[in-house]
Amino acid sequence: MLDIQADAAPDRRPTIVICAWDTDETGWDPVEDLSGVAWNPAGARTVPVAGDDPETLAGTLQAHLEQRGCRALLLVGRTGHGESFRVQMRAENRVLNGSRRLDDTGPGVARATAPVAEIVEALTDAGLMAAASSESEPDAGSYLLYCILSGLPDGIDSPAIALLRAPAAASDAAMQRAVKAAAEAIARHLAPLPRYHSP
Rank of each mutant, 00 (worst) to 15 (best):
A168Q: 11
G82R: 09
V47M: 00
I16T: 00
A168R: 09
I156D: 15
P115S: 09
N97Y: 09
P138G: 02
P194Y: 11
A168V: 09
D3E: 13
V49D: 02
D53W: 06
A131S: 11
L102K: 05
P192R: 03
A110H: 04
I16L: 00
D157V: 11
R165I: 10
D33A: 07
E118R: 13
E25P: 03
T26C: 00
A117G: 12
R68E: 14
H197G: 13
N40C: 11
V120R: 11
C70F: 11
H197C: 13
G82E: 06
R165F: 12
D53Q: 04
G27R: 08
L144Y: 07
R13G: 04
V49Q: 06
A72M: 06
T56E: 05
P48L: 07
D3Q: 14
R94N: 03
T15L: 02
A58V: 05
A112F: 10
A131H: 09
E135A: 15
A38K: 07
P167M: 06
A91K: 01
V37C: 12
Q62L: 11
E25Y: 13
E25H: 13
S150P: 04
S150E: 13
A131T: 10
Q176S: 02
V116I: 12
I161P: 11
A50N: 09
A20N: 05
A185K: 08
G106V: 09
R94G: 00
A170T: 02
G43T: 00
Q5R: 11
P54D: 06
R111N: 12
P107G: 10
R68D: 15
H189V: 02
A132I: 01
R177W: 05
G151F: 00
T79C: 03
I156H: 15
Y196N: 10
L34H: 11
R12H: 13
A182P: 04
Y146F: 11
M129H: 14
E92S: 14
R111K: 11
W39A: 04
R78C: 07
M89L: 14
A72D: 10
T79D: 01
Y146Q: 07
E184I: 01
S198C: 05
A185G: 07
A38P: 10
G106P: 08
D157S: 13
G69R: 08
S150Q: 12
I16M: 00
S35I: 08
E66D: 15
D29W: 01
Q176N: 01
E137W: 10
P107C: 08
T23G: 03
R13C: 05
G151H: 00
L123R: 09
I156W: 14
A117S: 15
Y146M: 05
E184K: 03
F85W: 14
W21M: 08
A131V: 09
E83K: 07
P10I: 07
G36A: 02
D29S: 12
A191L: 14
P192H: 04
A178P: 01
L73A: 00
A117N: 13
T113E: 00
E83V: 06
D24Q: 14
M1Q: 02
